[in-house]
Design a protein around this nucleic acid. Structure first.
Length: 501
DNA sequence: CTTAGGG
DNA sequence: CCCTAAG
């Protein structure tokens, strides 16, 4: 019991881990149009996690990275794939990637854990030892037999990444409210690696963009195992994993007992399952506050769609204060969230937050992640594709209908709330108008955007009164006939919208 | 609850 | 991004 209580409190904690990236892989998907094949064909230097598997560009292969913001996937009910995008450091500092893991159910480990993902590849990371409970040995996890069989599978599959087929694991998770990660094997480098991750419920749920694949798509992965697994957990893992092929290759240096002691426990799988079983299917909206709490940032929680429930009991782990009743509704959930926020400070003590994950372009990741104090601002850089999508959405739906746009065009992006969209639009307007902005800043931003896009923004800007500029003085310098028509078209739409409302 | 605004 | 006031 104590343990339980303890874990509750810790539920929110995030953990940082140092992991080694195995092999090279597919880059993050930039937009929904991208396919895995594209990615494979033209790897970018980005990291992405899908179902817990971190994937990255070649540059990272063999390197050890710190992961601070790990997002895992649940089944959001929207897409099966889950996972989060993690920051990519354009500058190439992959070794400082941050990936965060909510410590949620996992126990909290305050310190950074070193995980040694195995890889046949390089092995440069000897320095990082595992002190994780997760022992590398599959056998310990109980995968033993299964593993073997799976291995067979994986190897066969390994040859080519599979796009979606599988799906397996991730989906199952949702029910149990546990996240699983899948593993896959890649033969790149002539090494086989398969990784499996298993997370316990409390992660921040984030969704990546739409990824065609459900689970294992990327050729390479990192093994982020969670460290602390107890028997129950092991069981859990086993279950989760089942169905998948996995091969764990992890090397544990010290673990076992040590870990156990250190890490306290988390809700057992069974527990989770029990709950999930009860309500899993029908209940759609409940969520575990744990997540919330953990996050205090709404971004994690934000997506409306992705409410995932965790079993209350487990999650309940969360703050007692915000305790969730068993059947919590979404509304309740939200409320809770609010409460959680309020108590965040309190919780903060136990959890360390590391908020941010920056996305692809984000470079300002501090070398040393400033942990505690930064107000977690998970700032996610807006990618070009996102901006484009946003602009498209605005032109389609009109300005102001952020939720619609979010739903339709950004449904797969867990982050990016309607408000975010609006804010982004606001910024675009400011930038495009060339108003007095701090020259460098926004202009720079604008520069990055394709002219065509900028032009569209401007056109829309003429129509839309955002920052209170009703009659914008700005007349697009270049307004080809086509754009003119487009503008009027937009205007019409806008008007219509207005009337409607 | 969703927007608009402001910080 | 976050928070708050309005509709």
């Amino acid at each position: 019991m104590d343990h339980e209580a303890h874990s509750r409190n810790k539920f929110v904690n995030m953990k940082s881990q140092r992991v080694k990236v195995e092999g090279s892989f597919a880059p993050a998907l930039e937009d929904e149009t991208e396919t895995i094949e594209h990615l494979l064909a033209e790897p970018k230097s980005e990291y992405v996690t899908v179902d817990g598997v971190l994937c990255c560009g070649k540059e990272t292969a063999g390197k050890c990275v710190d992961i601070e913001d790990f997002s895992c996937g649940y089944d959001f009910g929207l897409n099966t794939y889950s996972g989060g995008l993690h920051s990519a450091h354009p500058r190439g500092r992959y070794d400082e990637l941050e990936f965060g893991v909510l410590d949620g159910l996992l126990d909290e480990v305050d310190e950074v854990e070193d995980i040694h993902a195995i890889n046949g590849l390089a092995s440069p990371c000897d320095d990082y030892l595992l002190d994780i409970g997760f022992t590398g040995k599959a056998s310990e996890l109980g995968f033993g037999p299964r593993e073997k069989s799976h291995l067979g599978n994986s190897s066969s599959e390994s040859q080519s990444p599979r796009l979606s087929g599988s799906s397996n694991g991730a989906v199952g998770i949702s029910e149990s409210s546990t996240v699983t990660i899948q593993e896959f094997e890649c033969k790149n480098n002539s090494v086989d690696k398969a990784v499996t991750h298993e997370f316990h419920g409390g992660f921040r749920r984030k969704k990546r963009r739409r990824i065609p694949v459900e689970g294992n798509v990327y050729p390479a992965s990192i093994n982020l195992q969670n460290l602390e697994l107890d028997n129950d957990e092991k069981t859990l893992v086993k279950e989760i994993v089942s169905g998948e092929n996995e091969k764990l290759s992890i090397e544990a240096t010290k673990l076992g007992a040590f870990c156990k002691e250190k890490r306290l426990r988390k809700p057992t799988l069974r527990y989770i399952e029990e709950f999930s079983g009860k309500k899993s299917k029908d209940s759609n909206e409940r969520e575990n506050c744990s997540a919330l709490t953990a996050t205090q940032d709404r971004s994690k929680v934000r997506c409306q769609n992705e409410h995932h429930h965790m079993s209350p009991g487990i999650l309940s782990s969360v703050p007692e204060e915000d305790s969730i009743s068993e059947n919590q509704t979404l509304a309740e959930f939200r409320t809770q969230r609010k409460l959680a926020k309020k108590h965040a400070s309190i919780l903060a003590l136990e959890s360390d937050e590391q908020p941010i994950t920056s996305e692809s372009e984000d470079d300002h990741v501090p070398k040393k992640r400033s942990r505690k104090h930064d107000r977690r601002k998970h700032q996610r850089m807006w990618t070009l594709s996102e901006v484009t999508t946003l602009v498209d959405g605005i032109s389609e739906y009109g300005v102001g209908r952020w939720t619609d746009i979010k739903r339709v065009l950004f449904s797969s992006s867990a982050y990016r709330t309607p408000i975010d969209l609006r804010d982004k639009w606001r910024n675009l307007l400011r930038a495009s108008c060339g108003k007095k902005m701090k020259k460098e800043v926004e202009q720079k931003e604008m520069r990055a955007l394709p002219k065509s896009l900028v032009r569209r923004v401007r056109e829309l800007a003429t129509v839309h009164p955002y920052p209170r500029q009703r009659g914008k003085k700005f007349a697009p310098p270049i307004l080809p006939t086509s754009s003119k028509s487009a503008s009027s078209d937009l205007i019409r739409k806008y008007v219509r919208r207005k009337n409607r409302s």
